[in-house]
């Protein structure tokens, strides 16, 4: 899933300067699961905006809405009536969601309330970790199902750098595991260490021509 986190309130507040009617739009998919932009977070942000406005004596009408998936045009279209009544939209979707809302309602300014951070998974309650670089050239079958492209801080393909800390932690963060130590341990467990001894060619960064676009054949 796409993982995001909310921007600092002051940054959001500054974006809204000069607008009087704002629609805060959440998304019911990824960012709901990672506690960043679901119905609950929309309610909290809207309340904080109203409170701040009233404290500063500023006129601000804050409305709330949540669509199931902000990255889908049809679902965003459902907001049309609500959008007509406001002069700005504050999207609590991921970057793809923000851009879809902006594309559907071209005449309205759309602001991001979140910073989209990575494609990841929950590690435990309230903790999400990055798992995929969306590189377009998956090599997980060689690496025991652990991605060195994104889980190694340097994205190295042929083994660990000399920066591995004692106990197999990463050079830049003792809280994070060295991906290559994890890969080693898993391949060893599977009796497939020969895979780690192979030479992997430099990555083909054209595997996805950015910006990515896929046309499916049916």
């Amino acid at each position: 899933m796409v993982v995001a986190e909310r921007k600092p309130f002051d940054e959001i507040w500054a974006m809204l300067e000069g607008y009087e009617r704002v629609l805060v739009v959440g998304c019911g998919t990824c960012v709901t699961i990672c506690w960043a932009g679901g119905e609950k977070e929309v309610g909290l942000l809207a309340a904080q905006l109203r409170l701040t406005a009233s404290r500063e004596g500023r006129k601000l009408d804050v409305r709330e809405a949540v669509v199931e998936r902000q990255c889908e045009r049809e679902m965003v279209e459902e907001l049309r009536d609500a959008v007509e009544e406001v002069d700005a939209i504050l999207s609590m979707g991921c970057g793809a969601g923000v851009q879809m809302v902006a594309e559907v309602f071209e005449e309205k300014p759309v602001f991001p309330a979140l910073n989209t951070t990575f494609i990841g998974a929950p590690e435990r309650e309230g903790v999400w970790v990055e798992r995929c670089a969306a590189c377009g050239d998956c090599m997980l079958y060689w690496t025991g199902g652990i991605c060195p492209v994104i889980r190694c801080a340097k994205g190295l393909l042929n083994g660990p750098c000399g920066g591995t800390r004692r106990g197999g932690k990463c050079e830049i963060d003792p809280e994070k595991d060295c991906a290559w130590v994890l890969i080693y341990q898993r391949l060893k467990k599977q009796g497939r260490l020969d895979l780690m001894e192979r030479y992997y060619e430099p990555k083909n960064y054209r595997a996805v021509k950015r910006p990515g676009r896929i046309v499916a054949m049916r």
């Binding site: 801080a153 340097k154 994205g155 190295l156 393909l157 042929n158 083994g159 750098c161 000399g162 920066g163 050079e171 830049i172 030479y199 060619e201 430099p202 990555k203 960064y205």
Partner: peptide, 27 residues
């Protein structure tokens, strides 16, 4: 060499490149 991480230096906000790793560099 691979090179130290960008984070330990004096331009920690720079984009780390690592287009290649040290084995690929030897090749």
């Amino acid at each position: 060499l691979t090179g130290d991480s960008i984070d330990v230096g004096d331009h920690p906000e720079a984009k780390p490149v690592f287009d290649l790793d040290s084995v690929q560099l030897i090749h």
